[in-house]
Write a protein that binds this DNA or RNA. Structure first.
Ligand SMILES: [Mn+2]
Ligand SMILES: [Mn+2]
Ligand SMILES: [Mn+2]
Ligand SMILES: [Mn+2]
Lengths: 219, 219
DNA sequence: CTAAATTTTTAGGCTAATCTAAAATTATAT
DNA sequence: ATATAATTTTAGATTAGCCTAAAAATTTAG
């Protein structure tokens, strides 16, 4: 059975929320993410349940069925492959790709995405460091940690971002931080949780709002 | 003002029909092309007229306004650039590209299409020999003729097709005919208008149904 | 353990895009 | 010139996706 663009966006939202919370996904959480009213979400949840893409129990929240999960992951795969394409082949910067990928991810053509994948040399990560699911829906997870929980005195590599908004990515660009950049945590201010970071011999103070949006890995 | 996918498809249909007939475009002609009922077309025509994309007089048919024409040509530009991309970069054959391009042509991102254009080296023709409008909406027309009107004894180059359906293109593939192929019109059977064609020293009889769908140019 | 707050669902309505059936208009053929 | 045929438009429904307001269910606080 085929899915509409709107249904696909709901499945993706449910998938992403479930990645964070691990439990049933609530109507309100979906409404917030989709930017729709809870009543609209309820309507759609009934439809998705009818299509066996989610299991839905009134007042109790939803979980993706295996079919629903595979559908969501396939959309995410397409989104991330398109983002790589835009950056690698079309001179887009990492803060420009998301909105276009939101449109491109809904293009229906298995051959297209298989060829794009090959054309890009089967990339495993998107421009924001997020893993690209393989065509079977398997996702390779790396053992990254959030910068705010890093140890003082330790050196890390930036491996991803939590917030992929243009505004945040431009902040990182300004301070020459990207995927692969080495960061040394020099000091932590306990009062506001801000970190002093050393990047290529330059010192930079990052507020908690910043450090909770950067993924790093011990070198 | 932004256009919906459906509105864009109507504008494209009106544009293509007006290319053939040169006069006002009728409701029924649009209905047939869009594969919708005439009443649905009437509804949409009112909407497009409200948006000043067409001039519409009840019972008299429609014409595109300058804005409408530019919108239609921009969609066609995107369609044809995507077709080139699919063939040149992603190993699609010319009979596989149309349906995917029908989806891709509606992606809204000026940067994306500008970059694709540059990435492809600013092509002027799509895989079916159709001209690619430039970013200002100008279309370079070539002086092609339809093969059925060609002269016996004359040699031609295939420069395009009228029917881009997968079925017709596969027929051409089977007989090793493509854009650039040399064809010599050896004979014409007056009874059924069929032509005997010589291609690379092989002889082939083409019915009128075939010859009215191939564009050629005198060598 | 109840009362208040919060969350979720239901009820009813709206718009875009489609449809069928019937009415209105225009074209065609004696 | 008029009757018939064809085309086009109107009228009234339907479906997807969204909304607001109110009701119902669940959670939280005292
Ligand atoms: Mn993205
Ligand atoms: Mn991304
Ligand atoms: Mn095409
Ligand atoms: Mn084409």
């Amino acid at each position: 059975m085929s899915t509409t663009l709107t249904e696909e966006n709901y499945l993706k939202a449910i998938y992403h929320i479930s990645q964070q919370s691990k439990s049933e996904v609530s109507t309100n959480a979906i409404a917030e993410r989709i930017d729709a009213k809870a009543s609209s979400v309820t309507d759609m949840l009934k439809k998705l349940a009818d299509k066996s893409l989610i299991t839905y129990v009134k007042y109790k929240g939803v979980t993706l069925t295996e079919t629903g999960r595979l559908t969501a992951v396939d959309i995410i795969r397409k989104h991330r492959l398109w983002e790589v394409f835009l950056v690698e082949k079309l001179n887009f910067s990492w803060d420009e790709v998301h909105d276009v990928a939101e449109q491109l991810e809904h293009i229906k053509s298995p051959k297209l995405i298989a060829e794009i994948d090959a054309f890009l040399g089967f990339p495993t990560q998107d421009p924001h460091g997020d893993p690209i699911p393989d065509k079977f829906g398997n996702i390779q997870q790396t053992n990254k940690i959030i910068l705010s929980k890093a140890d003082v005195g330790q050196v890390y590599t930036c491996v991803g971002v939590l917030d992929s908004s243009s505004e945040f990515l431009k902040y990182l660009d300004k301070h020459q931080i990207g995927i692969g950049t080495e960061l040394k945590v020099v000091d932590k201010e306990e009062f506001d949780q801000s970190l002093t970071i050393e990047i290529a011999s330059n010192s930079l103070v990052m507020s908690k709002a910043i450090t909770t949006n950067i993924y790093v890995k011990k070198i």
